[in-house]
């Protein structure tokens, strides 16, 4: 049984070693220096191997590919899982006015919902403004989030075409795609966000340690 196998002690892993060999890995994102996370890729592989050979209680039933496809709405940062369909900035403008502007403002300037526009170049200033345009590293995440969570009062109600359109409009408001843009899977994945290389792994503990008191 599970208890007879050695247990992982303080099994923590940094994003860099976890991503070793992962497809689509980009240099400059997770370099792993200074990380205190202790589990090496090899140890993790051993753990995963143990989990493959684990006991089976015979619980649950197989999920079919159709069932998985019906529920799986995860889009990765490279946009490889973006669905078919397309939408234009112009369509997005109309849809945004009808379904988003009430909370996010006519031009995405914010209201009861967050500000979606502006702030580029402000992140290192005393008044950083984090928005889709200034802070988000990957454009496909916009599709993922709007599809799963927006509009706040009716999530998962938009078609793929509508999500592409409104994503195109939010990117357009941020000056990241031109007015005549039509976004589909390939076009959205190709949008380079200004803050793409702005993220670093966790270096904590990062505050100088005092000597441990008696």
């Amino acid at each position: 049984m599970a208890s007879s196998r050695p247990r992982a002690r303080s099994a923590e892993v940094d994003s860099a070693s976890a991503r070793e060999g992962a497809p689509g890995r980009r240099p400059g994102f997770a370099v792993g220096h200074g990380s205190r996370w202790v589990l090496a890729a090899a140890a993790l592989a051993a753990l995963a191997a143990a989990a493959q050979a684990g006991p089976r209680y015979g619980l649950g039933r197989p999920a079919t590919q159709a069932e998985i496809a019906a529920w799986d709405i995860d889009i990765d940062r490279d946009g490889r899982k973006l669905p078919p369909g397309s939408g234009s900035v112009a369509q997005g403008r109309t849809l945004f006015a009808a379904q988003c502007a009430g909370c996010h403002g006519a031009k995405g300037e914010g209201g009861s919902g967050e500000r979606l526009v502006g702030g580029q170049g402000s992140l290192a200033s005393g008044k950083p403004l984090k928005t889709v345009g200034s802070f988000w590293p990957y454009a496909p995440t916009l599709f993922d989030y709007i599809r799963r969570a927006m509009p706040l009062n009716a999530p998962q109600s938009l078609t793929s075409e509508e999500v592409y359109a409104v994503s195109a409009y939010v990117l357009n408001l941020n000056g990241l795609v031109p007015d005549d843009t039509v976004l589909d899977a390939a076009a959205l994945a190709a949008v380079r966000m200004p803050n793409r290389d702005g993220f670093r792994p966790d270096p904590r503990p990062d505050v100088p340690l005092r000597a441990r008191p008696e």
């Binding site: 940094d14 994003s15 976890a18 991503r19 992962a22 497809p23 689509g24 890995r25 995860d74 889009i75 990765d76 940062r77 992140l123 290192a124 200033s125 950083p128 984090k130 889709v132 802070f135 988000w136 590293p137 990957y138 995440t141 993922d144 989030y145 969570a149 702005g198 993220f199 670093r200 792994p201 966790d202 270096p203």
Partner: peptide, 26 residues
């Protein structure tokens, strides 16, 4: 998965912005 999702809640939110404008993720 082989890679994290980089979902909105681990990029736009729940990341820690540093004075140099970079942000700590995960």
């Amino acid at each position: 998965t082989a890679e994290p999702a980089h979902s909105r809640e681990e990029t736009s939110k729940y990341t820690d912005l540093m004075p140099d404008g970079t942000a700590r993720q995960f």
